[in-house]
Deep mutational scan, measured.
Amino acid sequence: TELRLDINGREIKVDGADKETLKELLKLAEKNNDEKAIRIIRHLLER
């Protein structure tokens, strides 16, 4: 399955993203107070 998050109005594919990319996405999600995106990205970073 493909995991996509809508961050800042942009749909971004997050599964398969490297750790650096995920960290950047996490910063974006935190800036937007997007709890769902934050939770998902943190979960991916823990893998």
Rank of each mutant, 00 (worst) to 15 (best):
L5E: 04
A17E: 12
V14G: 02
V14M: 06
R47F: 15
K27Q: 11
H43L: 14
E20A: 09
E24F: 11
N33D: 05
E11T: 09
E24N: 10
L22H: 00
L25P: 00
R47Q: 15
N8F: 06
L25A: 04
E35H: 13
K13I: 15
L44Q: 06
H43G: 10
R42L: 14
D34V: 03
E20W: 07
E11Q: 09
K13C: 07
I7D: 04
D6N: 15
R39L: 12
N8M: 11
L5Y: 03
K19T: 14
I7F: 13
E46I: 08
E2T: 05
A37S: 09
L26Y: 05
I40L: 10
N8R: 02
K13A: 11
L3Y: 10
R39W: 12
I7N: 03
T21Y: 09
G9R: 01
L45T: 01
K31M: 13
E11H: 08
L3K: 02
D34Q: 04
D6V: 15
K36D: 10
T21W: 06
L44P: 00
E11W: 14
L5M: 04
A29M: 04
A17F: 09
D6P: 04
E20N: 08
E11C: 09
A37K: 01
L44I: 09
I38S: 06
R42C: 09
E11S: 06
A29R: 00
L3M: 07
K31W: 13
K31F: 12
I7A: 03
T1V: 08
E20Q: 08
T21M: 12
K27P: 02
G9P: 01
L28I: 10
E11R: 04
R4A: 11
E2L: 08
I40H: 04
K31N: 10
L45H: 01
E35M: 12
K36P: 10
I40Q: 05
K36V: 11
A37M: 05
E35C: 13
K23R: 10
E46S: 08
G16Y: 12
I41V: 03
L5C: 05
I41S: 00
I12N: 02
E11Y: 08
L25T: 01
R10H: 14
R39F: 10
N32M: 14
A29P: 00
D34A: 07
K36E: 12
L22S: 00
L26N: 00
L3C: 04
T1N: 13
K13Q: 12
K19N: 09
L28R: 05
V14H: 02
D15W: 08
L25E: 01
E2C: 12
D18F: 03
L3N: 05
E11P: 08
N33K: 09
L3F: 07
N32T: 14
R42E: 08
R47L: 15
A17N: 14
K13E: 13
T1P: 08
L44G: 01
K31I: 11
R4V: 15
R39A: 11
A37G: 03
R39T: 11
K13M: 14
R47A: 14
L5A: 03
E2M: 11
H43W: 14
E35R: 09
L26F: 04
D34I: 03
R10P: 07
L5Q: 02
E46N: 12
T1H: 11
H43P: 04
I38K: 04
N33S: 09
G9Y: 05
E46G: 12
A29Q: 00
L28Q: 10
K31D: 13
K13S: 12
K23N: 08
R39N: 12
A29L: 04
I12S: 02
G16I: 15
G16D: 08
R47Y: 15
G9E: 03
R39P: 03
L25K: 01
K19D: 10
L44F: 14
A29K: 00
E24V: 12
N8L: 07
R4N: 07
N32L: 15
T1Q: 10
L26I: 03
K13V: 14
N33M: 09
K36R: 09
A29C: 05
K27V: 12
D6F: 15
I7P: 01
L44C: 04
N8I: 04
G9N: 05
D18G: 05
K19M: 13
K27I: 12
L45A: 01
D15E: 06
L22T: 00
D15Y: 07
D15F: 06
I7H: 05
L22V: 01
N8P: 02
L25S: 01
L22W: 02
K13P: 07
T21F: 10
E46V: 05
I41P: 00
L25H: 02
L28E: 10
L3E: 07
I12K: 01
R4D: 06
E24D: 09
N8A: 13
E11I: 11
E35L: 14
K19Q: 13
A37V: 06
N33P: 02
L25I: 06
R39D: 10
D15S: 09
E2W: 10
H43Q: 11
G9M: 03
L25Y: 09
G9I: 03
L28C: 03
E24K: 13
R4I: 15
A37Y: 04
K27D: 08
K23I: 08
K23C: 06
I38T: 06
L5R: 01
E20K: 10
A17R: 11
E46Q: 09
N8Q: 05
R4M: 14
N33R: 12
L28N: 04
E35P: 08
D6A: 10
H43D: 14
T21K: 13
I12F: 15
K13F: 15
N33A: 10
D15K: 06
L3T: 08
D34F: 03
L22D: 00
D15L: 09
K36Q: 10
E35N: 08
N8W: 04
I38N: 01
I38M: 10
E20Y: 06
R39E: 13
E30P: 00
G16W: 13
D34W: 08
I12W: 15
E20H: 08
I41C: 00
E46H: 09
T1A: 10
G16N: 10
G16P: 15
E2G: 07
R42F: 07
R10Y: 14
I40D: 04
I41H: 00
K23Q: 10
R10E: 15
L28S: 04
I38Q: 08
D15G: 06
A17Q: 10
I12P: 02
E24L: 12
K23Y: 11
N32F: 15
I40A: 05
L3V: 15
I38E: 04
E20R: 06
R4F: 14
I41L: 12
N32G: 14
T1R: 04
R39K: 09
L26A: 01
E46L: 09
R10A: 14
I38R: 03
E30F: 08
D6W: 15
K27Y: 12
N8V: 04
